[in-house]
Amino acid sequence: MTPAELRRIANRIRRRDVQAVFEAGAGHIGGEMSVIDLLTCLYFHELSVDPADPLDPERDRLILSKGHTALALYIVLSEKGFIPKQEISTFLGHRSRLNGHPNRVYVPGVETNTGPLGHGLPVGVGMAKAAKLDRRSWRTFVITGDGEMQEGSNWEAIMTAAQFRLDNLTLIIDHNRLQQGASLADTNELAPFAPKLAAFGWHVEEIDGHDPAGICRAVSRATGTPDKPKCIVAHTNKGHGISFMSDNVAWHHKVPNVEQYEQAMAELAEAAE
């Protein structure tokens, strides 16, 4: 799939996301705009997954460890055919299986239940280790938020992944520089991530997390180092694609009013042309 096609899909997903947050009256819109290009490139270009056989043992695994941006994942899964597109309108609704954090028991395509931060990478290490034990070629991808990297469990898993030489594991850090209440820099500054991961023995790539060509290149098997897990530091913007949300910490989980919603949709529609 070409970068232009991936951009079109990502734009469509952004619009559906903004609409669903507006209609549900809740969501994590900033982090969703931030991660959508990464999810789109993975699901529409790189991952080997089959909605007709979501538990195929040979599938690639993706864990959205920043589980609060579940809506973005739900929309991607609906675009891929794992769940019906019309079901997105039930997001956060009474008894909907699409709650605020993904649940593998009820939503096909979800690999593990996330929500509390710092859970995805250890689980991803276990998946990658299972593939190594069986000498299988399927791969494991974990997407974390940059603020999420403040959770110590991630660093436990970073050590283990290097020790186990899991070159079939890719960690993508959605590095939008903002956490819930403030910037990372004003909270617990972990950046720069690249030298830290390199010091732990990982292969590191730094990319523009909104550039499909760069994302696709970084997540492919073509980049990496044998015996080293791969970390992609994806430089992103929270609220990307919507002028008044972009890089604005206020939009972590704010809901647009009617005027803001119309402006956001107009901007995204214009970008689609």
């Binding site: 690999e111 280790k129 299972a130 069986d134 469990s153 436990e156 898993a157 050590m159 283990t160």
Partner: peptide, 19 residues
């Protein structure tokens, strides 16, 4: 996994996912 119990249980869950 070394002295890392949170990681240990997560790794267990991932191994189970991998069969």
């Amino acid at each position: 996994v070394g002295i890392a119990e949170q990681n240990m249980v997560g790794v267990g869950a991932g191994l189970a996912n991998g069969g």
